[in-house]
């Protein structure tokens, strides 16, 4: 390094080197020595880091404006800072296995049962390359044969990303409702009161709908008891056995909003969204159980709810899917 470096220049260099994924141990050691050596080092580093983070977090429109103001050519390609999360899913599963957080047990009749623990979700990679993300407490039975892929959401919520295989339909049962897909993504929520099917990609067929199923969204393309659901559509099937315990009543009585703001510390996103939806023009739904357990800490300003919602894909590896009833569903971004 050149002779006279100011503290801030050194801080800027470090900041960039830490970004390098191939950071060596010796580098970490040297950085740590530098960082702890003087308060001024720490301050300079933090100052630059925050400035960088704030610049990174500017709205997309500003970034375009910046290029114009700086007389720079249009950006090479539209793209935003996407964290490489190619391995995140696999790693999550691997760690879950190591931690013994869930189990997989072979079952009679070639059926495999997947159970997600009561307090966490679980991602299952199925033999055909499809994935199922199970919400906390969900139970999924899987049995594959040469002709079909049969799955049963016995309880809870499961989000499926289906590997395309026209010769082997992917059939998901939930409380007497059957959803058939070839290659698509959809969510099935099976609780004591109802089964809800939400499609976030492609099309699914729903049949043997007991009672009076209701499609939310644009008119359904139905023929002979079969319902087609396309992206953004949702089918709600109330279950006959509705005499169960009342669902945990909305704890809405305790509003988290206070003077137009709501504070959260390590709150699961499903809780945060419930609060946000009390005030948002466009309600946000959990479209994928993995989203429900992302954690959020921070303050949400009612006056800036739209910006907050728009920022979610930058903070988490999620994307929003517009549903036809005007709501938005949040799902994890594909790997």
């Amino acid at each position: 390094m050149s002779g006279q470096q100011t503290v801030h220049e050194a801080a800027g260099d470090w900041l960039q080197r830490l970004d390098d994924s191939e950071l060596s141990e010796a580098d970490i050691q040297r950085w740590l020595e530098w960082f702890t050596e003087a308060d001024a080092h720490r301050r300079a580093f933090e100052e630059l880091r925050q400035l960088r983070a704030r610049l990174r977090a500017t709205p997309a429109s500003w970034r375009i404006e910046m290029r114009r103001k700086l007389n720079l050519q249009a950006p090479p390609a539209t793209r935003w800072w996407t964290p490489p999360r190619r391995w995140a899913l696999a790693a999550g599963v691997a760690v879950a296995v190591l931690a013994g957080l869930w189990w997989r047990g072979p079952h009679p009749g070639g059926e495999t049962l997947y159970v997600a623990a009561a307090d966490r979700h679980r991602v299952v990679r199925l033999d055909d390359g499809s994935t199922a993300a199970l919400g906390a407490g969900a139970v999924l039975a899987v049995s594959y044969s040469g002709e079909r892929r049969s799955l049963d959401v016995r309880r809870g919520e499961a989000y499926f990303e289906v590997r395309r295989d026209p010769g082997r339909p992917f059939m998901v049962w939930a409380g007497g409702v059957r959803v058939t897909a070839i290659g698509t993504a959809f969510n099935v929520l099976h609780n004591s009161r109802q089964v809800t099917v939400t499609v976030t990609e492609g099309v699914v067929w729903v049949d043997s709908v007991p009672g009076n199923g209701q499609v939310v969204g644009s008119p359904l393309v139905a023929s002979s008891g079969e319902t087609h659901l396309a992206v953004g559509q949702r089918l709600v099937v109330p279950l006959a056995t509705a005499a169960d315990a009342a669902p945990a009543a909305n704890a809405d009585g305790l509003s988290v909003w206070h003077n137009g703001r709501a504070d959260f510390i390590n709150a699961p996103l499903h809780e945060v969204l419930r609060v946000v939806n009390q005030r948002a023009d466009t309600p946000l739904d959990i479209g994928d159980p993995r989203v429900a357990y992302l954690t959020y800490s921070g303050t949400i300003m009612q006056a800036h709810l739209d910006e907050w919602i728009a920022s979610l894909p930058q903070v988490y590896a999620v994307r929003t899917v517009p549903l036809n009833d005007g709501r938005l569903a949040l799902v994890m971004r594909a790997q």
Binding site: D20, M66, P76
Partner: peptide, 29 residues
């Protein structure tokens, strides 16, 4: 943000370009 733009405009074009791409637009080094 505008102040930052002004500040950046005082720098050489290539320096600006590198900064905008890396920090603001998120391209890797």
């Amino acid at each position: 943000f505008e102040q930052a733009c002004e500040a950046l405009n005082e720098l050489a074009p290539r320096c600006r370009e590198a900064f905008v791409r890396h920090v603001v637009e998120g391209y890797s080094t």
